[in-house]
């Protein structure tokens, strides 16, 4: 609680320092993420509205039941793998930020590389799943999976699935690219010269946000 004590004794709004005790770029990353929350929120709420307006909906355990090399009839298994990959890459990112706090260049690079590998593993899983579903006849505008009550379904399920997981996958992809860039910068000693690793903290926020969105994509598409 040293922070709370310091906060109580500081005149935050008297000028000369950040009233939020945050560097400008980091604060703006927070506000960007808040706006992105509303973008994803709008997409997921669209999914909720369309699903609520339908008399029946495809059963996710029927749609997502395959695992590479193991065949089908295995609901939840593949998506569990994807979820754990993303959680683990979030943990390695936290560790990179932690090393950055201590100015440990080697530690930052090591954990950033693990984070990048986690991101690439997740993207590979998603590529496999999209390919698999596409082979089964699912794509924007076509949905081969019947509703849970046996009636013929509309294409809403596929449309929303590919749009939302696609938008999330695009975020993961951008995250991996930015992670690679900042890792190279760390390796070149840019942050060492700057005297701090705040850039790692900023990309870290973005990366955790991507993990956070997946928590809800996983929840609404695969679990409920």
């Amino acid at each position: 609680m040293a922070n709370a004590a310091a906060a109580a004794n500081t005149k935050w709004w008297s000028g000369g320092k950040s009233p939020f005790n945050l560097e400008y770029g980091k604060l703006m990353m927070w506000y960007f993420l808040m706006s992105d929350t509303f973008t994803f929120g709008a997409l997921l709420i669209t999914y909720g509205t369309v699903r609520m307006s339908s008399d029946s909906w495809p059963d996710p355990n029927h749609v997502f039941q395959s695992f590479p090399l193991l065949g089908s009839g295995l609901p939840l298994l593949f998506v569990s793998l994807m979820t754990f990959i993303l959680i683990v890459s979030s943990v390695t990112m936290v560790l990179a930020v932690h090393e950055g706090h201590h100015g440990n260049k080697k530690g930052v690079i090591k954990w950033m590389i693990w984070t990048i590998l986690g991101g690439l593993a997740f993207l590979s899983c998603q590529a496999w799943e999209w390919t698999h579903l596409h082979h089964e006849g699912a794509w924007w505008g076509s949905n081969p999976f019947p509703n849970a009550d046996g009636t013929v379904s509309k294409s809403n399920f596929s449309d929303l699935f590919f749009t939302i997981t696609g938008f999330h996958g695009f975020h993961v992809f951008s995250g991996v690219v930015i992670n690679i860039i900042v890792t190279i910068m760390a390796w070149k000693g840019v942050f060492e010269r700057r005297g701090h690793y705040l850039m790692i903290e900023k990309i870290g926020l973005y990366w955790h946000f991507v993990d956070l969105v997946w928590v809800f994509v996983f929840l609404f598409f695969y679990l409920v």
Binding site: N3, A6, T10, K17, S18, L22, E23, Y24, H101, H196
Partner: peptide, 12 residues
């Protein structure tokens, strides 16, 4: 570590 003078105390 310095934080460009904006940050009063480190987060960790």
């Amino acid at each position: 570590q310095t934080f460009g003078g904006e940050v009063t105390f480190p987060h960790e």
